[in-house]
């Protein structure tokens, strides 16, 4: 198996504040990988470490086979990097920025960029600073696709975008990844958009990695169970079976990787009487909230 990114036992602190400890994951070549987590769980920190803009306290991070803190210019040319907020050289216009970047990348595809720009209702000499966030995102996407990188690292592509632009962004990315066998590493705080897009994911919480597994496996194995119980005094806690729980009066919601039988046996063993037991189907966002909690 060829891995494009290999993160091993990464630990980082900002001063005394722990971001995470022993974060490890690998990204397969040609896959679409999501780093999911609430705000402040270390997604951008990880992106910064991956791009060599932050030295981790300990651990190692290999990107396209090189130490991420010492990426060679040749390897940088193979990595497309989207900064959170679709940051670009806003003092340039559409034509100038294409002219600028085209000099750096040997596989530059000018037509891909201008094809995307032709769909925008902007003039070629319009400065990027005068564009809406949505338009700016298309310029950024056009530049990334024209670069034709082997690995795309996208830090919160969804920031500031309305539903239309978010969908457009992902549609282009999907087509690009499928056609060219490219690897995409993406973070976002809008999980619902990534449903059906991601192949593999790591979910971060304030205590570190909650899980890493293929999305389909997560979707099929992670379940939400609801039931009623007369015993409102039960003290629920996370354990090997219950990954998270919510209670509203006598209504209980449990999240687990166990199947129906496992859950029923679990409740019986704990001598909890239950009624109206049902397994509720979840979309990716609900499953994400289920495993990380609402707070």
């Amino acid at each position: 198996m060829e891995y494009v990114v290999e993160v091993n036992s990464l630990t980082h602190y900002y001063g005394r504040k722990k971001v995470y400890e022993n974060l490890s994951f690998k990204i397969k070549k040609g896959s679409i990988f999501g780093l999911l987590g609430k705000n402040g769980t270390g997604k951008t920190t990880t992106i910064n470490i991956l791009n060599g803009f932050l030295k981790p306290k300990s651990g190692s991070c290999l990107i396209l086979g090189e130490d991420s803190y010492k990426i060679s210019p040749e390897t940088k040319a193979r990595i497309g990097f989207l900064i959170e907020g679709h940051i670009q050289y806003s003092f340039m216009n559409i034509r100038q920025i294409e002219r600028f970047y085209s000099e750096f990348y040997p596989r530059w595809k000018k037509e891909v960029y201008y094809d995307l720009m032709s769909r925008l209702k902007v003039l070629e000499n319009q400065k990027i600073s005068k564009m809406s966030c949505g338009q700016r995102s298309q310029v950024t996407l056009g530049l990334l696709l024209a670069q034709d990188p082997d690995l795309l690292i996208l830090d919160d592509y969804s920031m500031g975008l309305d539903a239309g632009y978010r969908k457009l962004f992902l549609d282009f990315l999907r087509e690009y990844a499928q056609a060219e066998n490219k690897t995409i590493f993406i973070t976002s705080h809008i999980i619902q958009d990534l449903d059906g897009f991601l192949e593999d994911c790591v979910i971060l919480d304030y205590d570190g990695v909650v899980l890493q597994m293929p999305i389909e496996e997560f979707r099929s194995k992670f379940k939400m169970y609801q039931f009623s119980t007369e015993n409102e005094s039960v003290k629920w806690a996370k354990d090997d079976v219950v990954k998270n729980f919510e209670t509203i009066k006598n209504k209980v919601t449990l999240y687990s990787f166990g199947d129906d039988e496992t859950m029923k046996n679990y409740l019986t063993t704990k001598q909890i009487h239950f009624t109206d037991f049902k397994c509720i189907p979840m979309d990716l966002e609900t499953a994400f909230v289920g495993i990380t909690g609402k707070y």
Binding site: N51, F53, P73, K76, I79, I83, Y89, F104
Partner: peptide, 18 residues
């Protein structure tokens, strides 16, 4: 100033140059 505003310098340092 345009480089350090919004950490745009990251774009510049990500260019395939030393």
């Amino acid at each position: 100033y345009p480089e350090v505003q919004s950490s745009r310098l990251k774009l510049t340092l990500h260019l395939p140059l030393k």
